[in-house]
Amino acid sequence: MIRRLVLLFSICILAQAAGAQTTSGKVRVGVAGLVHSHVHQILGLNGKSIEIVGIAEPNRELAERFVKQYKLPMSLVYNTTVEMIDKTKPEAVTDFGRIVDHLQTVKVCAPRGIHVMVEKPLATSYADAKEMAALARKHNVQLLTNYETTWYTSNHHAYGITHRDKAIGDVRKIVVHDGHQGPKEIGVMPEFLVWLTDPATNGAGALFDFGCYGANLSTWLMRGQRPTSVLAVTQQIKPDIYPKVDDEATIVLTYPTAQAVIQASWNWPYARKDMEVYGQTGSVFTLDKSRMRIRRTEKEAEQALEAPATAAPAADPFAYLAQLLRGQTKPDELTSVENNLIVMEILDAARQSAKTGKAVKLQ
């Protein structure tokens, strides 16, 4: 009897230890694709909050280049996502492939109970985005969209000033600027450039590549409202460099009591990701990751601000992913399926508007 009790006690202790490891250990992550330049971030952060257990990349030369740079074993690399998942059993997969391939990644991962984080935007079409969301909900997995600006403390502090502090009155206009001189001009790797400048694999040019940031932030600042209409104008200022896609885009979102103007460009003289939020009585601007300006009223002088380091939900997307899967943080709206379904509805409508020259009303 005593031996049996000791055995049962030992089993309980082992079970508790296993549970503790599950909730506190590094998240086992698989990487689907290496053709997106943002993959450098996760490779550089491997071993901190996450552990890369496998990489799916059929281009062996590209894979060898990355594993050599980050001192990883080539044994981590598999030809397909299915093979990588079956062999390594990750808890989550981060997709650094072509945007058009995001749907297939979710089709592979969701039925196996594997969480997915994709690089922005969520998909190349609203139809694909809805199918991805349905799969994630059916199989009860996280489907997250990663934007660089989600981890900007300035954006979260601006949101707090606007909605928590109510320091500038109700939102009336949002203006978001995103982009750089152009992907070829800044020297992105050729494996990235080839699909980024193809409408079939990226959805559009600057319209999708940088318009998604403004759609994401505007939806968040408008507290999940869908716009009533979407109007977009696109241009090919550099058709000799980008013959298949736009390199200049402006999107205007109309809400019942506000407007958002999204300026996405591969023609800025320098890289930028900044935002202006105007309320009934004042304004708050984000200048970069942490620097800001606020003017609460017409009579008050503008003030420079530095956003607190704790304003963002995490220091980086993979720390956030680990904390979320371990139950150590609450879901963030900017990465959420709900927000990013609206983003894709906006981008789909913007693409249609740019083709027809007419505003698209959202029913």
Rank of each mutant, 00 (worst) to 15 (best):
Y213C: 01
H139Q: 09
T150V: 00
S218Y: 02
S49T: 11
V29W: 06
E61A: 09
A158C: 08
A15R: 12
A133G: 10
E185Q: 14
R293W: 02
Y270P: 00
A260E: 01
N46Y: 01
R351I: 01
E191L: 09
R272M: 15
K130L: 13
R60G: 00
E248G: 07
Y78E: 02
I251V: 10
Q235I: 03
D288G: 11
T124D: 00
A301S: 13
V106N: 10
W220E: 01
L135Q: 12
P199M: 09
F66H: 12
I174Y: 11
R4K: 12
H102Q: 13
A350Y: 08
G182F: 02
A127D: 13
L231N: 06
I262V: 13
Y78T: 02
G44L: 12
S154E: 03
P73T: 05
V31N: 07
F210P: 00
V106P: 04
T201Y: 10
H102V: 05
D240R: 04
V53H: 00
V284L: 06
V100G: 03
V284A: 08
G282Y: 11
S283L: 06
N79P: 00
S49M: 09
E248H: 14
Q259E: 14
K238Y: 11
H180F: 01
A354L: 11
M189N: 06
E148H: 05
G282M: 11
R3Q: 13
A311Q: 05
G44D: 12
Q41Y: 12
A319G: 14
V106F: 03
